[in-house]
Design a protein around this nucleic acid. Sequence first.
DNA 1: TTGTACGCGTTATCAA
DNA 2: TTGATAACGCGTACAA
Lengths: 356, 356
Amino acid sequence: MSTDITIYDIAKNFNVSPSTVSRALKGHKSISKKRTQEIQAYAREKGFQVNSVAAKLRTQKTHTLGVVVTWINQPFFASLISGIESVAQEHGFHVIISQTHDQHDLEVQVVNNLFNSRVDGIIISLAIETESFAHLEQFKNRNVPLVFVDRVPSAFKGDKVIIDNFQSAFIATEHLIKQGYKRIGHITATGKLIFKQRLDGYKAALNKYGLDIDESIIASAPSLSEENSLAIARKLLTQENRPDAIFAAIDSTAVITIQLAKEMGLNVPNDLGVVGFNNDPISSVVDPQLTTISQPPVLMGKIAAEHVLNNKEHMSEVITLDTELIVRGSSVRLTEGNSNGKDLSSKQFSSQDMGQ
Amino acid sequence: MSTDITIYDIAKNFNVSPSTVSRALKGHKSISKKRTQEIQAYAREKGFQVNSVAAKLRTQKTHTLGVVVTWINQPFFASLISGIESVAQEHGFHVIISQTHDQHDLEVQVVNNLFNSRVDGIIISLAIETESFAHLEQFKNRNVPLVFVDRVPSAFKGDKVIIDNFQSAFIATEHLIKQGYKRIGHITATGKLIFKQRLDGYKAALNKYGLDIDESIIASAPSLSEENSLAIARKLLTQENRPDAIFAAIDSTAVITIQLAKEMGLNVPNDLGVVGFNNDPISSVVDPQLTTISQPPVLMGKIAAEHVLNNKEHMSEVITLDTELIVRGSSVRLTEGNSNGKDLSSKQFSSQDMGQ
DNA sequence: TTGTACGCGTTATCAA
DNA sequence: TTGATAACGCGTACAA
């Protein structure tokens, strides 16, 4: 059915060889001006389009980037991908995206498929921590640039674009402490390194300021789904000696916590301070607005993409991007003259400023 | 550098021909059990992976879908893509995504690139309404399935997966009318068909119930960015004879309207009713929660993908998915005994139920 | 059950 | 400045 025109057809028309056409079409300087113009005009007229599959096979370059994330429809990943795609497009690269749905076996499968498709680079946020990296090692062997983003492996060497989760969580918790909260709980997810790091940062802040670490107000679930978050928040807020503040490892959980607290008749931030993590759109919509850690997902994507595209061989690099604490109403107790947390203009403290 | 193993290497090892290896690797029944097992075992051991670029050139099938949207990091599109990717993955297809940033020339460029890459299907949400469809027609000519989603062309024949924007807007507006709002304004964007349809639905509802169409409370901007939305909302709410309700063409604008109204000391929903469109995550986070039209982006993506993959030749089909009016606090005036709009359990009315 | 031979469409090398 | 030829790696009709 396909009546696609090829360089052979064009060659025939001009009684020249296909190689001449190929060269003329890409403006090779060895072809005469006249021929080049003729051929290009004819090609345009006939609607010629190169078959890039053939070119890919011949040149062994696909000009394609593979991106692997858990879920595309999470604000953080959507923005990450958007950043990647923008940069890729500028460089004439395609972006293939794959979701792992947080399942390791799916990750292995999609990664292998990307490998077979000969992507020229791959950017990945891991599904789950694992010890098996065979599916990733093949890229190293073939010298295909591989960059980890966000959820990176601790036991695998390679380029990484990350934020300092420990330090960010430390700053978030410290903020609550300085606001006068005494009994600060934490809600997090189990089994993933970034959450472990946030937990550690939280604990370190408590330690530094001489507050007890009370495991009864630290709660976690395998995933912070809406249901799990709500269940955990309810457990924490209804227990006997409830926390007076919550640091949640992701914004959606923090928002659910705020909503539950309000429903229970608690005033946020007076009865309960809340801090989240991510600076998702919902964080500036909830009432009171949510204090949170902002990380720059679009920028992370752009940097990761730049890094893949300008790959320096044989060196691995860890790029740590700054985060910022964005202080909003959910964590600043109301005093006289400060009638309303909503209008608090956001103050920002970056992890950089903290001299880490 | 690439020391990839090919079917030739394997063939040499067993002193058989490459075709035997090719067949054995895909379990072709004409190859003896013994050979097949030997070869597969050896291939696995040596880490053989087919070069799908070569296979693509040979078979003229890329098993790749192209997806073109304006911005990946908009909740609607992120979810749409997520749905597409899930279905594609099940069918062993890759998904290449491209953003147009709402620019027609970029759309033409990325679409042409996808064409050159010989995608086996394409799903697109148009950048802007245009009369030039040359970049899309080439797919038709080559018999590549093409499905429009969300923002579809009025003047181009082809498969479309859409919602009924007119009817949905009608229902949204009618809801406000039935809640007793008398002076209902509308905020929308210019130049895109879906927004035109929503505007028309809004007007039709006013007409049906004998309310005046007052252009002074209908406002629009080329794009509903945060700044534009805020400026428009402010203009509407501060003018002399301000509306007592706003139907906004997208949720983010509705949310900004609610926030502005609260800031101005207006009570939502008592002084101002607000209805949005999309059911983005923010709509159930804002206080009071936002009444809105829910469209199913993940489902739209899945259906579009299924449709591309099971393409019936030479027929074009328009699939209209149901939407639902999700009634929340922002549009239901408080009465005694209904102390708080937030706890209103969502009532849903689908566009299907309305017998359209 | 296996092998031969060719083609997919392009680009690169070498020679003219 | 141009042409002939090979090669990228695989899949498949046809033959054996």
